[in-house]
Design a protein around this nucleic acid. Structure first.
Length: 429
RNA sequence: GCCGCGGUAGUCUAGCGGCCUAGGAUGAGGGCCUGUCGAGCCCUUGACCCGGGUUCAAAUCCCGGCCGCGGCGCCA
């Protein structure tokens, strides 16, 4: 082992104890007869004091910012130290001396453009703000899993190389599969439905790919989709589930990520259940009242969604019961009014972060819907045939992880919220 | 893809026809300093995205390209 403690575990109670720490050189303040090093690891920073009479003194002169080292030292509780405790170095062993100057300042003295930050991403991820983002990400995922486990969902994995488009619409990335044409999955939709048809309650956290022109702060070519599918349930049931998922995540992040939120200067609002629900038709009325010319069937675009978000006032709200023909073929229509569907979008401000519905479980209706959308039911036989063998009524949704992270971090670009984003122009790092 | 704005040392910025031999911060190199904590002080180092054009004179104005950011569209 290279370290006996993380820097966050060095507390005044350890006074007098010898510890081994390992991490990165965050800053060096050289006062001549004494040098102060801030040593950083994932958990935080600790001050290391190197005095002239220490054996470690000479090795400090070769250290550059972001070099990795092991520090052996004695813990000293001292109110002059930034955190009330510091480590007096006995020896400092360098592992890797970083090149200088750095292409990005990890210490945060000079802020870099997002362009530079994504190019120099590994250094950028060492910044305390980005480490906080990654820690929060992990807690959000953990909470998502725990809530679903507690409701008897199981985690599944669906194929990511598929034969054809699942729902039309989005552009697919082609791949060559043993000489045949295949595509990267744009969504686990059909497979998660089939799984729900076998084991009732499933979820998946996995990448999905869309070869769209989209060039905005809310789109990625490769994104993590948090998918849920539930048998013997309708869209009301899964909206309620979604409310539980989101509010539990907020609780977990508030409880475990206070330090991270402070680092990001971000506060999470109190969110209460249920979230406001606005029907598509109501949304049109609101928008018309605001001077928009918008008719039944028109999409609610970004400028319109911004107005709605302002009207609603709370960060999260549902837009429900969209026109059937604007939704994919597997979306169930409302029996009493087939022009509308049992569907919803969960909005965070003006951004759609989740989208779901009750699904059709009747083969005839599915075939009809496919034809209506100009798709050939024969191409969906791998999916449709299972509807002959006792498909339960079911519902589900997919949620965009990076978009959700905008809420938890206060960031306003999904490319910042995940470590290595893929967009129209970025394929590395 | 369309519209708008922008591209100045490793990083971040000021300058927007001649006061620019391009200013500052941070980094880097050197020096002083035994309690710094965005340490301080002194010295040094390093830049006008690319290609055309206008002009006596271009970082600065015009045109084209590339790249970036924002808005919109497409899409989730």
């Amino acid at each position: 082992m290279y370290k006996t403690h993380f820097t966050s575990e060095v507390t005044p109670e350890l006074d007098g104890k010898t510890v081994f720490l390992a991490g990165w050189i965050h800053t060096i303040r050289d006062l001549g007869g004494k040098k102060f090093i801030l040593l950083r690891d994932r958990s935080g920073l600790i001050q290391v004091v190197v005095s002239k009479d220490s054996a470690a003194y000479n090795s400090v002169s070769e250290l550059t910012l972001e070099s990795t080292v092991q520090v052996e030292g004695i813990v000293k509780s001292d109110k002059r130290a930034p955190s009330g405790v510091e480590v007096h170095a006995l020896s400092i062993k360098p592992f890797s001396i970083a090149k200088s100057p750095l292409p990005l300042e990890v210490s945060g003295k000079v802020e870099s453009d997002i362009e530079t930050r994504l190019k120099e991403r590994v250094l950028d991820l060492r910044r305390v703000e980005m480490t906080s983002v990654l820690n929060i990400s992990s807690e959000v995922i953990r909470s998502f899993r725990n809530t679903l486990y507690s409701k008897r969902f199981i985690e599944v994995f669906t194929p990511k190389i598929i034969a054809s488009a699942t729902e039309g619409g989005a552009q697919l990335f082609p791949v060559i599969y043993f000489g045949r044409e295949a595509f990267l999955a744009q969504s686990p939709q059909l497979y998660k439905e089939l799984l729900a048809g076998s084991v009732e309650r499933v979820f998946e956290i996995a990448p999905a790919w869309r070869a769209e022109e989209s060039d905005t702060p809310y789109h990625l070519s490769e994104f993590i989709s948090m998918d849920v599918e539930m048998a013997f349930a309708d869209y009301h049931d899964v909206m309620e589930l979604l409310e539980d998922l989101v509010t539990n995540m907020i609780d977990v992040v508030k409880t475990h990520c206070g330090k991270e939120l402070a680092e990001l200067k971000h506060e999470l609002p109190n969110i209460t259940k249920p979230f406001p629900k606005i029907s598509y038709s109501e949304a049109l009325e609101i928008l018309r009242g605001k001077g928009f010319t918008i008719k039944f069937g028109d999409d609610i675009g970004t400028p319109e969604a911004r107005i709605l978000a302002e009207e609603v006032g709370t960060p999260f709200y549902f837009l429900v019961e969209w026109p059937s023909f604007t939704r994919p073929f597997y979306t169930k229509s409302i029996d009493s009014n087939p022009d509308l569907s049992e569907s919803f979008d969960l909005m965070y401000k003006w951004i759609e972060i989740a989208s779901g519905s009750t699904r059709n479980h009747n083969r005839k209706v599915l075939e009809e819907n496919l034809r209506r959308k100009g798709l050939n039911p024969e191409n969906f036989e791998f999916f449709l045939r299972w509807f002959d063998y006792g498909m339960p009524p079911h519902a589900g949704f997919g949620m965009g992880f990076a978009r959700l992270m905008l809420f938890f971090t206060g960031l306003n670009n999904v490319k910042e919220a995940i470590p290595f984003p893929r967009d129209k122009k970025r394929l590395t790092p």
